[in-house]
Nucleic acid binder design. Structure first.
Lengths: 133, 133
DNA sequence: CTTTAAATTAGGAATAATTCCTAATTTTGT
DNA sequence: ACAAAATTAGGAATTATTCCTAATTTAAAG
């Protein structure tokens, strides 16, 4: 497990140099330019391996396919539930206190990996005002 | 838009009475018992309508299909990234302060809908210890 | 450097999850 | 009771992802 592979290196490089939270499909499109013979299953398999290795994050979307994120610095995401836009932001969540609460309520020691906020961005809010909500 | 529909009522009822975070498929299986002629597309369509109406929440999973949650009281979710188990929990996030930070960093007024924690549960942690991580 | 075992690959088939399409039915407001 | 709008069942189509296999690449050991 985890032998060297050129393809995996190129995939990680693509994600690193395209900090736009690309989807698997977008990663494939960017990778195939540099490595024309690569297959989509190789891209999917390596994305999952890189997530396991914690070199990249999977960002769970409410609309459309999941997106991926190079791990360069700990940060949170706010994801618009309507348009799916992802915003990076930094917030000093009190993880110790959250852990303590999780422990009390769930009777389990949880490893907190990331905290994601789902909401509505300003664009979508103003669109909705014009319509019905 | 939003005429009365028996099917929608039954679907909401099913979700209300099965607070197990069911998937769309599970909701269909439960609904079809009460409404044998209902089609899966009707279930999917109404689930989305109920989410828009904020009667139910969509819970974004890391493994497997999304799950749904009757909105009876505001709470957060901790989702295990490995096994996909969902834990409900209550935590008094300082939403005002988070909003202020979002405003500062993103230059947008964001409506915070929910805050989700992704992590590793105790079972999965101890499994991993035995294996490789 | 050969040899061998393990890991990885390309390519496509298969599966899973969800949305879309259409004609028929139901609901709403008059 | 009627017309317009909304919703439905059923299935086709699409989207996203995983699985399968034989061939290739990599690592490690002599």
């Amino acid at each position: 497990m985890n032998n060297y592979s050129k393809q995996r290196e190129v995939i990680l490089d693509v994600i690193k140099n395209n900090p736009i939270h690309p989807t698997a499909e977008e990663i494939y499109q960017l990778t195939v330019k540099k490595e024309p013979k690569i297959s989509k299953s190789t891209v999917y398999r390596n994305i999952n391996i890189l997530v396991d290795m914690k070199k990249i994050n999977k960002v769970k979307m409410t609309v459309g396919p999941d997106r991926y994120d190079y791990v360069y610095k700990e940060h949170s995401h706010m994801i618009c539930e309507r348009c799916g836009k992802i915003f990076d932001f930094y917030y000093n969540f009190n993880k110790d206190d959250i852990s303590k609460n999780l422990k009390q309520q769930l009777k389990e020691n949880i490893i907190i990996d990331n905290i994601t906020i789902y909401g509505i961005c300003e664009d979508c809010k103003s669109k909705n005002e014009k319509e019905e909500f």
